[in-house]
Write a protein that binds this DNA or RNA. Structure first.
Ligand SMILES: [Mg+2]
Length: 322
DNA sequence: GCGACAG
DNA sequence: ATCTTGTCGC
């Protein structure tokens, strides 16, 4: 499901002389909270004018931004040329608001349905795992670059895999998995049975289906979510360096504190208990970020350099011993 | 008007 | 996540 392509298609439906809003497009996509992402996608519009992103404005009628050397003045010029009046820096939405979008599917509705089904498959009991894996991604334009660090049974980094692929989904809070999982799927497939450490939440998610859970269920392997900031949940302090994180009175994860401030939030993804997720994380935590994820994040930068230098090509696996 | 939402 | 140079300190 190519959300980028869908957004560009929706914008092409806006007739000359009309405008729509970021929120209206987001609603058409199935979640008003994707409105910010709509703006980010339009900011990278590869074919301005053909895809008339200048016809998308803020919900109060103000113009918003325009990624062009002349900035938003260019947006105003284009709109005026098309017959859209701009008074006091605003368009009159009552006069020229377009909202009659034609689309076959609302991706974020589909995503929510999918998350519901995934969440029913999550097992929160301990399962055996052979060794540990850490995963992270970076981005270069529309390309995601993944680094997968595989540890040996003794806990030493053994090798790193790199992989890059074009993204189809922009980042929208609570839908992270739909952006990142397609990129790591190919390089993670054969690692079933490893304990995955992922850069995002597990069951510490409004629909109990964060990225780490999504990955764990898809690969049918134990997984832990290690996030740098909180998505949802209530903090209940336990001690100097630990707090429980609750979602309606249920312990969904833990916050680990270093010197008075939270360093990471840990929650089980799949095939592990909340307690074991915390213990396994503490075992590999030397610095602020646990080793698996920390190293993956580091290699992600090397991967990006290789990608820029054409040493790492799209949809081509690259593996390096450590 | 303020708060808030992983990466 | 990305943009982006230097600086302070262990
Ligand atoms: Mg990341």
């Amino acid at each position: 499901m190519d959300v980028y392509a869908l957004i560009y298609d929706l914008v092409r439906q806006i007739p000359e002389g009309y405008v729509t809003t970021y929120g209206a497009i987001a609603k058409a996509l199935g979640d008003i909270r994707a409105s910010k992402a709509v703006g980010e996608v339009l900011a990278m519009n590869p074919t301005p004018i053909i895809v008339p992103c200048h016809r998308v404005v803020m919900s109060d009628g103000s113009l918003g931004g325009y990624t062009h050397p002349e900035g938003v003045r260019k947006k105003a010029e284009l709109l005026r040329r098309e017959g859209v009046e701009i008074i006091g820096g605003k368009v009159n939405l009552k006069k020229c608001f377009f909202n009659d979008f034609k689309l076959k599917i609302r991706p974020f509705e589909v995503f929510r349905d999918y998350q519901k089904r995934i969440s029913e498959k999550i097992r929160l009991e301990d399962y055996d795992f052979s060794a540990i894996v850490g995963v992270d991604l970076t981005y270069n334009g529309r390309y995601g670059i993944a680094a997968v660090v595989v540890f040996d049974e003794k806990g030493n980094p053994e090798y790193v895999r790199y992989y890059s692929k074009k993204t189809l989904v922009p980042y929208v809070p609570t839908y992270l998995a739909f952006r990142e999982y397609p990129i790591i799927e190919e390089v993670s497939r054969d690692l079933r049975g490893y304990l995955f450490f992922l850069d995002g939440h597990g069951i510490l998610h409004p629909r109990k289906c964060g990225y780490a859970s999504h990955v764990g269920v898809e690969l049918d392997t134990p997984s832990i979510g290690v996030a740098k900031s909180l998505l949802v949940g209530n903090i209940v302090i336990e001690s100097n360096n630990l707090a429980k994180v609750l979602i309606d009175d249920e312990v969904r994860g833990y916050a680990i504190y270093d010197k008075g401030r939270a360093s990471v939030y840990v929650s089980p993804g799949h095939k592990i208990t909340v307690g074991s997720a915390l213990r396994e994380t503490m075992k590999v935590k030397k610095y602020k970020i646990p080793e698996p994820t920390r190293l993956a994040h580091y290699y992600t930068k090397l991967g990006k350099e290789m990608f820029k230098n054409r040493k790492l090509l799209p949809e081509r696996l690259l593996e390096t011993p450590l």
